[in-house]
Computed example of a mutant assay.
Amino acid sequence: MKRVLIATEKPFASSAISQIADLLHKAGYSLNLLEKYSSKNELLDAASEVDALIVRSDQVDRELLDAAAKLKIVVRAGAGYDNVDTAYAKEKSVVVMNTPGQNSNAVAELAIGLAIYGIREFFGGKSGGELRGRTLGLHGYGYVARNVHRIARALGMKVLTYTRFSKAQATSEGLQVTGSLEELYAQSDVVSIHVPARGIHLKSVSMAVLKQLKKNAIIINTARKEVIDEEDLCAFMTQRDDVKYLSDLRPDCAAVFEEKFAGRYFFTPKKIGAQTQEANTNAGLAAARQIVAFFEEGDETFRVNK
């Protein structure tokens, strides 16, 4: 019998756990659950005898991979997987997968919500603006950005994108793809960032890009803090007192924002883009299905450490 561990400091919704358990039990697998654990040792002990692991933002590092001697597959229930040491997992012959698209609507709705919050002056009583008729620039065009496009279009926004890897997808949907990131930022009233924290995307939002922004622009970041050059962002926000920055993750330079940029920023207490019951259920069930398909059929469709 295959043993599956769900190890989550941020638990799945109880309804999601129930459906995941049913799916795994029907496949003849056992399910262990470790939620809100308080120490690394708890995680190491729980993983020591399992064949498969489902995590959310939990760290799957060398120590864990060494402790989990029987582990064959890790599935990150979500799109980003920078919390998993994919290279070392490959060395250990452990397959790593993500569940792309399962959280995308939840994150997209948050991005639009933050844009509304920003343009309405944080609901503080001051006269704000409207999104209709304004230009939204999508920095990246993956699953989340496509959902943002759908919602923004319904709100009457003009939508542009800059993408290196999804140009065909974007143009097939009638989107204008700008020739550079600088061009995207120069044309946008609101920029929404949707790229992973790896490769060319790391610190891609630099001073060279930021200085192109239109007056009174709003930057929305529901991706990762590592895609922002935070030193450049703070310098830019000092130079341009008309720009707002809203994110669902607290940057390393948050203290600078608190000291210097009052009324021009908002950070959620923790990363909440995927924190809906629907996204919980979608991502968790997708992870469980992928584990069963991997063991029963050798399916590695969503493998990220090939």
Score class of each variant (00 low, 15 high):
residue 236 F to L: 02
residue 29 Y to I: 07
residue 32 N to A: 13
residue 49 E to M: 12
residue 193 I to D: 06
residue 77 A to F: 02
residue 25 H to Q: 15
residue 67 A to S: 15
residue 75 V to S: 01
residue 205 V to E: 03
residue 47 A to R: 02
residue 294 F to W: 12
residue 217 A to K: 10
residue 214 K to I: 06
residue 289 R to I: 03
residue 223 A to P: 03
residue 20 I to F: 12
residue 124 G to R: 05
residue 33 L to E: 11
residue 137 G to M: 09
residue 125 G to E: 10
residue 44 L to A: 04
residue 66 D to E: 14
residue 72 K to A: 10
residue 124 G to F: 01
residue 52 A to L: 11
residue 27 A to V: 05
residue 164 R to F: 05
residue 60 V to E: 03
residue 82 D to W: 09
residue 184 L to P: 00
residue 47 A to F: 08
residue 251 P to S: 00
residue 43 L to G: 12
residue 153 R to L: 07
residue 182 E to M: 02
residue 137 G to Q: 11
residue 115 A to E: 02
residue 305 N to C: 05
residue 57 S to A: 13
residue 3 R to P: 01
residue 191 V to A: 10
residue 180 S to M: 01
residue 291 I to P: 08
residue 193 I to G: 04
residue 228 I to V: 14
residue 284 G to K: 08
residue 4 V to L: 06
residue 233 L to K: 04
residue 215 K to D: 14
residue 4 V to I: 14
residue 243 V to H: 01
residue 141 Y to Q: 08
residue 34 L to S: 09
residue 253 C to D: 07
residue 100 P to N: 11
residue 281 T to A: 03
residue 136 L to C: 13
residue 223 A to Y: 11
residue 274 A to D: 12
residue 87 A to C: 00
residue 248 D to L: 01
residue 129 G to C: 01
residue 148 V to Y: 08
residue 284 G to W: 09
residue 29 Y to Q: 11
residue 66 D to I: 00
residue 201 H to Q: 00
residue 48 S to P: 12
residue 214 K to W: 10
residue 302 F to H: 15
residue 277 Q to I: 11
residue 137 G to N: 05
residue 120 R to C: 02
residue 248 D to F: 05
residue 11 P to Y: 05
residue 260 K to P: 00
residue 22 D to K: 15
residue 180 S to K: 05
residue 238 T to C: 12
residue 288 A to C: 13
residue 224 R to T: 10
residue 224 R to G: 06
residue 246 L to K: 08
residue 35 E to K: 01
residue 1 M to W: 02
residue 173 E to C: 00
residue 249 L to I: 07
residue 80 G to F: 05
residue 117 Y to E: 10
residue 179 G to K: 07
residue 64 L to R: 07
residue 59 Q to P: 04
residue 131 L to I: 14
residue 214 K to N: 11
residue 27 A to K: 08
residue 85 D to W: 03
residue 235 A to Q: 14
residue 10 K to Q: 09
residue 226 E to M: 03
residue 155 L to D: 08
residue 17 I to D: 10
residue 305 N to Y: 11
residue 81 Y to R: 04
residue 195 V to A: 06
residue 239 Q to F: 01
residue 254 A to R: 08
residue 138 L to F: 13
residue 44 L to P: 12
residue 94 V to D: 10
residue 66 D to N: 15
residue 10 K to T: 09
residue 139 H to I: 06
residue 278 E to S: 06
residue 23 L to K: 15
residue 70 K to A: 14
residue 110 L to C: 03
residue 144 V to C: 12
residue 246 L to D: 07
residue 233 L to D: 02
residue 76 R to N: 09
residue 258 E to I: 00
residue 197 A to S: 14
residue 179 G to S: 12
residue 281 T to G: 01
residue 227 V to R: 02
residue 227 V to P: 09
residue 56 R to G: 04
residue 178 T to H: 06
residue 105 N to Q: 13
